[in-house]
């Protein structure tokens, strides 16, 4: 290929890529189950009054970038693994280092941000370029209506890039 064809090739590639991510194509949200080595755990969220906990992960590349910038980059895959808390055998919950211990897994939730995503959702409910998926602990997809199940609540935290805790985590990392 001679250099004079390069701009045309690049333009065609851009068009093709754009078409692939257009409004008619639903986002292909990552299924992280079985690929845990690609993720790092950043936060544990205990819910003591109902005896559950959530482990929050981010893909390792985005985690490294977010530590440098304090912001969540495109390509961020936030994964939440939900568990029942392990019982202590005395009617309470097992506590280790001041935190719940994971018991039975109950689900896997994913929040992913990619350039151009979100255009298929009404502006009134859209979460920027984030979209959502839910899986069983074994990795089977669970059909959800993200606009009803996820976006309504996350819209309340637009100021922290539609995340409840993760943006705070990296912002605090920057401010240490």
């Amino acid at each position: 290929m001679t250099p004079r064809f390069l701009p045309a090739f690049a333009a065609a590639a851009t068009l093709l890529t754009g078409a692939a991510q257009g409004e008619d194509t639903p986002p292909q949200i990552v299924n992280p189950v079985g690929y845990w080595a690609q993720y790092e755990k950043i936060i544990q969220v205990d819910v003591p009054l109902r005896g559950t906990l959530r482990e929050v992960y981010i893909d390792s590349i985005s985690g490294r970038l977010a530590r440098l910038t304090g912001k969540l980059p495109y390509g961020s895959k936030i994964v939440m693994r939900d568990f029942k808390a392990a019982p202590d055998g005395k009617g309470g919950w097992l506590i280790r280092n001041g935190q719940f211990v994971p018991g039975e897994p109950t689900g896997v939730l994913v929040q992913e941000k990619e350039r151009g995503w979100g255009a298929g959702h009404p502006d009134s409910i859209r979460n920027g370029e984030w979209d959502y998926a839910v899986y069983t602990p074994q990795g089977q997809p669970i059909a959800i209506n993200a606009e009803k199940s996820c976006m309504g609540c996350h819209q309340q935290v637009e100021s922290t890039d539609y995340t409840f805790l993760v943006q705070n985590f990296f912002a605090n990392w920057m401010n240490r």
Binding site: I43, D46, R50, T52, L165, F169
Partner: peptide, 21 residues
């Protein structure tokens, strides 16, 4: 209201029912 607390890499919230909202 939805009330939460966060200490670096540990957080908690006051959900007491199956409702997440």
């Amino acid at each position: 209201q939805f009330v939460w607390g966060q200490r670096v890499n540990y957080a908690f919230d006051y959900r007491a029912t199956p409702d997440d909202t």
